[in-house]
Amino acid sequence: MARKFLVLGEVRDGSLRNVSFEAIGAAKLAAAGGEIVGVLVGDSVQNLGNEMIQYGADRVVAVENDQLKQYTSDGYAQGLLAVIEQEKPEGIFFGHTALGKDLAPKLAGKLESGLISDVTSIEEEGGNIVFTRPIYSGKAFEKKIVTGGVIFATIRPNNIEPLAKDESRSGDVAALSVDIKDLRTIIKDVVRKASEGVDLSEAKVIIAGGRGVKSEDGFEPLKELAQVLGGAVGASRGACDADYCDYSLQIGQTGKVVTPDLYIACGISGAIQHLAGMSNSKVIVAINKDPEANIFNVADYGIVGDLFEVLPLLTEEFRKLKVNA
């Protein structure tokens, strides 16, 4: 039987999130030549179908309904269940995002199926789709397979390569009409704190500050560097506990687990809980006054020095690079 996988295209501010393209890449690995069907859910999303196809989906099913303007687990679950019912896929992939984490367990629960969360790689071994995921916040990894029901997975951003965009690809984008009703949670208001800059979980570059940042204002040089590099600002628990920044920036065993291409730790000592959240980053730079700081044990490159002296110089160097590029 030919394999068929669904991938939810997650829409944010009218555009598809990059992790959804990565999820298509993941589904390609799992489907081993089978069909990839993109799924779009929202009030006006059908126009995004082509982009999913350009990133590797064979066709797209779009569920449009006024009730789906904002994400609610009830609304989206009704939309997706209708698509699953119609397509009868072997599996369905989501991004491991706030939405994916909220929605996938509900659907997997409803269909009494296995869900593998926070997947960082996929391979096919002897007919099984083997998922790798971090446990203990990255202190260890496990390989898992789904043994019951539909194969559900959420794909961690920045780990599985998306396919190159191919604008010559085309495919069918079909609407599916679904009656959405009985929403039991109502979103009254959304305050966007994260609107400035790049989302932490998807950022390719993260500049993180610890206690050494010393104050809320101390984050300014980090923000400047992040801006020049198109990255996001994060923090250690120490900085959050000291009220230098919001808990939503916290990286570590409690907080976010991140795997950017470049992680620059500024004034972070490197407690084991923090390392759990970032040590699988591709390249780690540590800037710390204390040459004995534990962070240097995981850093690829270290500068022993005052972050308030180093960061402005670093920002300047990168600026020059950008101008010359």
């Binding site: 260890a140 496990e142 390989k143 240097f296 850093a299």
Partner: peptide
Amino acid sequence: VEAKTKTIEIYLPAKKEAGKVL
């Protein structure tokens, strides 16, 4: 209550080599 997933292997990440302090 039989699980719907199965763990086939657990492993530790490769130990990071100490980097270069400039």
